[in-house]
């Protein structure tokens, strides 16, 4: 059912975002797009080129960007996509997002690119490792972290069709293809990508393919059978699916390219605490800042490469 193999082709998620926006724009003449002088990077420029009258590049002023997106969306008869880098789309204007988009559950779909440490050489000022945490905290905000181009496309359509506020987190890097093109996405429903009985690994985004590779290594090296789950949406999260897996394995590991504070790990722990408490190991960016380096170097520094993940999971299981 799932396509992923170790040498799966990579898909350009930003390009697919741009293409899907154009598709949606052709379908619905009311859709608007707002960007903040990063449209050539986020790829909303593709929409801007075809629909210049419905595209607003407001410049380097992210608070204004969110205000303008909100104003376009207040009557709820137009769906608005708003984009920038994750740092500037969620960090700078957080309270404005909460006040308008969150509070009124406006049909604004915040699609951030360049999240996480894999933005690389730009350094800590651009490495947004806290966005899932701060967006999850806003009531009404749905938070989705697609793992590849195929699920991304479905997520974008779902966000378009579903009333209300969305945060969709993308990165700069290309992702390996994990899902078949005809994958179906339902908000709050995750996927079991690999079955196992010894430990449950819950991962999102780029870390889904790393978790699948790590699961293969765990089996090869240590005979550990890991179950791998991609919840896709972190809020609402598929607590039932995760708890069901935990009942079988008794141990859960979460992996995210995000701070271990407030992100996927904490969302999973909240669900398990109520449904079926088991030991949980949170893997992600520790309570610190990133630095300049290539994406691969930084993933290695923070021990998020598949071999390192397998090793860390093995060590943790042994320590229990």
């Amino acid at each position: 059912m799932f396509l992923y193999t170790k040498d799966a082709p990579k898909g350009d998620i930003r390009k697919v975002y741009g293409e899907t926006l154009v598709e949606l724009g052709r379908k619905d003449p009311k859709i608007c797009v707002v960007d903040g002088d990063l449209s050539t990077s986020t790829k909303t420029a593709m929409f801007g080129k075809e629909f210049p009258e419905r595209f607003f590049n407001v410049g380097i002023d992210e608070q204004n960007l969110i205000g303008v997106a909100s104003g376009l969306a207040y009557d709820k008869d137009r769906v608005v996509f708003a984009s920038s880098f994750a740092m500037f789309l969620t960090g700078r204007p957080w309270e404005i997002i909460r006040q308008h988009i969150g509070y009124n559950d406006l049909p604004v779909k915040l699609v951030a690119t360049h999240a996480g440490i894999t933005v690389g050489p730009d350094g800590a000022s651009h490495q947004m490792n806290e966005d899932i945490a701060i967006m999850r905290a806003i009531p009404n905000m749905r938070v989705v972290v697609p793992a590849d181009i195929h699920i991304l496309k479905k997520v974008l359509y779902k966000a378009y069709e579903t009333p209300g506020a969305f945060y969709i987190r993308l990165t700069r890097e290309k992702f390996p293809v994990v899902y078949p093109e005809d994958v179906e996405f339902e908000l709050g429903k995750g996927f079991v990508l690999r079955e196992g009985k010894d430990v449950t690994i819950v991962a999102v985004g780029l870390m889904v393919s790393h978790a699948l590779d790590a699961a293969t290594l765990l089996k090869e090296k240590y005979g550990i059978e890991a179950e791998v789950i991609d919840p896709v949406s972190v809020k609402p999260i598929d607590g039932e699916l995760i708890a069901e897996s935990a009942r079988k394995t008794g141990r859960v590991v979460t992996i995210e390219e995000h701070s271990i504070i407030g992100g996927l790990g904490d969302a999973v722990i909240s669900e398990l605490a109520e449904r079926y408490p088991v030991p949980v190991k949170k893997i992600g960016i520790p309570d610190t800042y990133g630095e300049s380096g290539t994406a691969a170097e930084l993933l290695r520094k923070f021990e998020l490469m598949p071999e390192q993940l397998a090793e860390r999971i093995h060590n943790w299981l042994r320590s229990l």
Binding site: P121, G123, S125, S292, L298
Partner: peptide
């Protein structure tokens, strides 16, 4: 510049 461990960060 911009290399891992360098004191000269991208910004």
């Amino acid at each position: 510049l911009r290399k891992l461990g360098s004191p000269l960060q991208g910004h």
